[in-house]
């Protein structure tokens, strides 16, 4: 296998020229998205440059504590992002619940795959731990946003149904069961769709990256299968735990829904 050809910064800048096409189309249709596009591209570049340099450092020193610290930072950022994008208020209890749920979702899956499947001598090894955690976490974040938003806003729209169940002798879990089910289905649907079409309509980023850096496609697909399973399991686990843990904050002692945790109370 050939090793990957490095891209110079100049070549990368040349690559940005292709943006002329989408910007032209966006302008032609007066979408008012040019500003957002420019901001998104700049943010993406700055963030990735920052991460690139940081990962260079992480990979070079490969200190388990530093690696763990980096993961905690990633989980913390995902935590705030989940709360914000789920349209919930930044309540301390919610932040703690979602943080623990996300961390556990990622940690359990990491432990299983790195320790028992890949059987790494050191599961804290940056080369494996950081990219695999990042892949799982990114997908957990998407699943959490869809699941937690659906759970609380669906409940808000159909509070009378939940109340009817509670007034008919349901425990809190029984009253919330249909809402929980709906949230889990909605959060996992994109991953299911991705699993069902992978390889046919898309070559995933991780596999592409591995092949570009010289891995055999057969090794790349094994990692890809593993990562898809990890994403599926991690997403469902973190959505389940996220909702479960946040219930203590989202309901009062009489098991009534606290709508004050929602950003948009009148949807």
């Amino acid at each position: 296998m050939n090793t990957i050809i490095d891209i110079s910064w100049l070549q990368l800048a040349l690559g940005l020229l292709i943006l002329v096409i989408p910007i032209y189309i966006l302008r032609r249709f007066k979408t008012k998205l040019i500003g957002s596009t420019v901001i998104a591209v700049v943010r993406m570049i700055v963030q990735l440059i920052f991460v690139g340099y940081y990962l260079e450092y992480l990979f070079k020193y490969d200190n388990p504590w530093v690696n763990l610290g980096w993961i905690l930072i990633m989980v913390l950022v995902a935590d705030f992002s989940t709360i914000d994008r789920s349209e919930l208020k930044r309540d301390k209890g919610l932040l703690v619940s979602i943080f623990i749920a996300t961390f556990l979702g990622v940690f359990i899956i990491d432990l299983f795959f790195l320790q028992f499947v890949i059987q790494l001598p050191n599961i804290m090894e940056a080369q494996y731990l950081i990219p695999i955690t990042g892949m799982i976490l990114g997908n957990c974040l998407r699943g959490n946003v869809i699941g937690i938003n659906d759970f609380y806003y669906n409940l808000y729209r159909h509070q009378e149904r939940y109340r009817f169940f509670m007034a008919s002798g349901a425990t809190k879990s029984e009253g919330l069961f249909p809402f929980f089910r709906s949230a889990l289905i909605k959060s996992i649907n994109p991953t299911l769709a991705a699993m069902a079409t992978i390889g046919l309509v898309s070559l995933p980023g991780m596999m592409t990256g591995q092949m570009l850096s010289g891995s055999s496609p057969l090794i790349a697909i094994k990692y890809q299968i593993m990562i898809m399973i990890a994403i599926f399991a991690g997403t469902l686990l973190s959505v389940y735990l996220g909702i479960k843990f946040s219930l203590n904050v989202g309901f009062d002692r009489q098991n009534n829904f606290r709508t004050t945790i929602l950003k948009k109370e009148k949807e």
Partner: peptide, 26 residues
């Protein structure tokens, strides 16, 4: 208690599913 609200909402699903769901409660 049993409560009959003005506009009963038992949720999505067939009549059979939503009617008997209340009898799944412990």
């Amino acid at each position: 208690t049993a409560w009959l609200p003005q506009d009963l909402d038992l949720g999505e699903g067939s009549l059979e599913e939503v009617f008997f769901y209340l009898f799944d409660f412990k």
